[in-house]
Write a protein that binds this DNA or RNA. Structure first.
Lengths: 181, 181
DNA sequence: GCTCCTTACGAACGATCGTTAGGGTCTAAG
DNA sequence: CTTAGACCCTAACGATCGTTCGTAAGGAGC
């Protein structure tokens, strides 16, 4: 609930009064449920982290590397589209977390990126991907594209199809003379 | 000057008092130079737009499509690294522009994205890139990666090398059996 | 029936917000 | 010397911020 407003107007752009009004309640009443505004931001971040990790968990690990990457991309984009609010907080508003919670977020993000990178590394090591692949750069390329999607994703877009389009480009490159599928 | 603080703490997270202190001045004194806080955000956005467009202007148009894309990626990443403040405002803080200025930004971004997309479309139409290339998706993939870079770019990173790494992945794909270079 | 806990209210708190006003100091042109 | 304008000061403005307070209604468990 709070995540929606944070995503819309930003953390500092959303007042406790705004949140209370959205809930149909006086602003003082909110403090029966939270200790501070920061708590709401923290909860939204945690929700986002959980959603992204859960989506990645659902990718089977007995598939070829390419397929796993395609499915991971689908999973990530689906979270962005279906849980846009918490996803937005996770990718953009986390910066306003204070104290240990900011560090906790960074750890969470690092862990997620590492899981993503492993998809590429494993694929390379098993010989399913190019042997000279820069897996760090590849993971960042994909994750960046997926993270940025929320800025232009139209509501109700088919994210699976979009993920497949990205993957098609990524798999064979933009140059001609495509390798056989 | 203001862009730095906006990039660091966000627009709403930066007070006029903060800006004044950074300039070694009382906050009331700022209003001899600006009409409102919004003006500072607007100026930073305009600076960012100009920097990105100027960087793209410097890409020669008598090169093969692949080279132009590689250079455009270099140019974009260089702006992000060397003018991180205005670049950050352009990609993230623009949302707090009010009234016509928000619309003006959207037009500016659209124009920039269109210029980027044209690189891919032209390359495809001239037969220098895959004939089945989805130029819209490709442009978004590249621009997203470039835009997101500011979140993890280490200070003093070699952005040209990074751009080339991205391009290498993009050109030939991640799969094995690379096309001959 | 009594007590406890949750939830909510309305009012108020001190702090900080963006902005304005009035007055002062300096510099450069007339 | 005078004047105009640029620049900065201090002080204050009304508004809004996040948070706290005392109180009260309602339900659950004894």
């Amino acid at each position: 609930m709070a995540a929606r407003l944070f995503a819309e107007r930003g953390y500092h752009g959303t007042s406790i009064g705004d949140l209370a009004k959205a809930l149909g309640v006086q602003k003082g009443s909110l403090y029966a449920h939270i200790e501070s505004k920061q708590d709401l931001l923290y909860e939204a971040m945690r929700e986002g982290a959980e959603a992204f990790h859960a989506a990645l968990d659902a990718v089977p690990d007995d598939l070829p590397a390419g397929e796993r990457i395609r499915l991971a991309l689908r999973a990530h984009l689906r979270v962005v589209a279906e849980q846009l609010d918490v996803a937005t907080v996770f990718v953009r508003e986390w910066r306003y977390l204070e104290g240990d919670r900011a560090a906790e977020f960074l750890g969470e993000r690092r862990r997620y990126e590492e899981r993503f990178r492993a998809l590429f590394r494993d694929g390379r090591e098993r010989g399913e991907l190019r042997t000279d692949l820069d897996d760090q750069a590849a993971a960042r390329l994909v994750l960046s594209a997926a993270n940025w999607a929320y800025t232009w994703l139209p509501a109700g877009a088919d994210t699976d199809e979009l993920a497949d389009r990205f993957y098609a480009i990524l798999a064979d490159g933009i140059r001609g003379y495509a390798t056989p599928r």
